[in-house]
Write a protein that binds this DNA or RNA. Structure first.
Lengths: 341, 341
DNA sequence: TTTATTTACGAAACCGTTTTCGTAAATACA
DNA sequence: TGTATTTACGAAAACGGTTTCGTAAATAAA
């Protein structure tokens, strides 16, 4: 099909050096079975002829691919983009290739992708589940096939696996507390519909901070957005337009901070004068918004890097085993003007 | 090495059905050589046993990988993130996998990556070169090996290949013209050092707009940033602090818009009162900056999608050939308050 | 009815490595 | 000096598919 040029093979090298294919193969991979002088001869020819092994033949023979699969909901998202950077830094360092798959928050796609992984395409998987992910049999099935998997950020508590997350509960608690300290009485909590498994942790942090400060927890102050629906935005606007309107908003997801700004603008509400806003966000532009947005900033790069390191380390072992641990890397509260008094 | 479970192979399926391996293989790929009844029998067993072919064996045999390699400078960048979405949409649709590599603007990494591609790891390549990329032999070498390649956005003019770009020249011209119309006399042009090849197009658009409007083109008004160096920022600040200071700024790269905002803030300059700003950017937050940023917005998704479509279409042909064409998808000027009068 | 063609399949080679195993020569041990 | 180990390599069998080619039976053409 392809008009690939004359690809150099081990056999050709072997012929040129009067050695066997297996000797060449071993020499290239620095096997102890091969003498140093032979290794040198081989490597010189490899250099000279610019030989590059066929990765598919290697993978087939060795039953591993030096590839890790990264499954994330979305890439147009500062958190995930930065996490990819972290993952990629470890991958490069250890000679792994990175296959990226986007679920676009669809559990169906997620299932499809994980199923494909049963083929042995990747040596291990880094997974951040979609919002829709409520069941987790597809994940267990993959793991039971012996494919190592590490969760990052959006984990499924019910699945036993290595996980790298941030301190969602504490962060939300702290954010809520801040708003309370700043005098807010009616605090809206904005999130996306997350069917089950994925963290209600932020919500709980919010809830408990309210209770601990003798404020009522009001069900209606939780706004659960569907996918970019206009309806939710209108509901938000309505909440901000009541006589007894909200005076504080926590956007528990990066994408939900901007609608708040927009709503306030349209309603001519002053931030932070009328409404104080705080967002879970990795946006580099947070400091330049109008007004600058106070954020809970997750250690995206670190989370990606740590998850990848965990996986790569496990892959390097004879007997692959991932501890059932949860590594927590704390987020940072960055105070800016959207929450000053 | 891996404790992979009992992977199902064609041979096992063949035995169960009393057919030959080749028949099964053909049936699965819907070959015309196989009768419908046999295909049905095979597919039923495939379903039942949940058989998934080993991609590495397939690739080795068929000499193609159903994988495309995407090489970009950075993923924490709205443009590239959105371009990936476009690429991925086409890939998914056509059953291709997407291998993503980041150069981090380093030509050395870029060379490394392209060299690895000589191995046949990917069927085709989507490339947006690094800022450092001044020579292009590494690209030509790869293409000469018969690996189809499509440039997107950051192309190398000297290399003959398919390219998908936006109208950089016109966009910059238009942006400059806008500032001029708005009364700016001293317009700064901010860019990163791009050694050669990559578009001086934006710069030329800027230059010609000045000349066409009888404004002097002043070499010193071009600020060429190195990598995130503090020095450049200080130079920018200085330029905005002269007695005859700049009254307009064009950030020809997304990342350079924020430093302008920061500098203005520190200098207590009003945007757009004292300085008008326009940025090449895909930032979703542009509309919520203080003040909202007028942007030249590139059709990132479309560019990625088009480039991928071009590549995939070529890969589908018996004889792979990519026209030496350049597809131009125009950017949009979005007027916001950073340039109002 | 005879011959040509098509249909539906199987045998075997092949893709380019890795891995297992066998072995002659070199070295160590006793 | 004879035996046990190492050392350094090669032959051949995987790995799990795809592809080529050959062929018997079924169908079409003459």
């Amino acid at each position: 099909m392809n008009q690939k040029i004359n690809n150099l093979t081990l056999k050709m090298l072997a012929k040129q050096l009067g050695l066997s294919v297996s000797t060449i193969s071993k020499a290239i991979r620095d096997s102890h079975e091969i003498s140093d002088t032979t290794k040198k001869r081989v490597n010189e020819l490899v250099q000279k002829l610019n030989y590059i092994p066929n990765p598919y033949a290697s993978s087939l023979g060795s039953r591993n691919s030096k590839t890790i699969g990264v499954v994330i909901p979305e890439v147009v998202d500062s958190f995930f983009a930065k996490a990819i950077n972290g993952i990629e830094s470890i991958a490069q360092e250890n000679g792994y290739h990175v296959l990226i798959y986007l679920t676009h928050e669809s559990i169906e796609k997620e299932k499809q992708i994980l199923k494909d992984f049963e083929s042995g395409r990747v040596d291990g998987v880094l997974l951040s589940v979609s919002r829709e992910t409520c069941s987790h049999s597809h994940i267990n099935i993959l793991m039971n096939k012996g494919v190592p998997l590490v969760f990052f950020d959006r984990v499924v508590d019910e699945v036993k696996a290595s996980k790298v997350v941030t301190n969602d509960y504490e962060s939300a608690y702290k954010a809520t507390e801040l708003l309370i300290k700043n005098g807010c009485k009616q605090i809206l909590f904005l999130s996306f519909l997350n069917t089950l498994a994925i963290s209600n942790k932020r919500l709980n942090g919010y809830k408990n901070a309210l209770l601990d400060n003798r404020l009522a927890f009001i069900e209606k102050n939780i706004l659960t957005f569907q996918n970019d629906s206009k309806k939710d935005y209108l509901l938000l606007k309505k909440k901000l337009n009541l006589t007894k309107r909200a005076d504080g908003v926590i956007a528990s997801v990066e994408k939900l901070a901007l609608p708040v700004y927009q709503a306030c603008e349209e309603l001519r509400l002053n931030i932070p004068g009328d409404v104080q806003v705080i967002g879970f966000s990795n946006l580099d532009t947070a400091a330049f918004l109008n007004p600058p947005l106070t954020t809970i900033t997750q250690p995206a790069f670190e989370i990606g890097k740590t998850a990848a390191a965990l996986l790569v380390k496990a892959l390097g072992r004879k007997k692959i085993e991932l501890a059932n641990e949860e590594i927590i890397i704390p987020s940072t509260l960055v105070l800016r003007r959207s929450t000053s008094l």
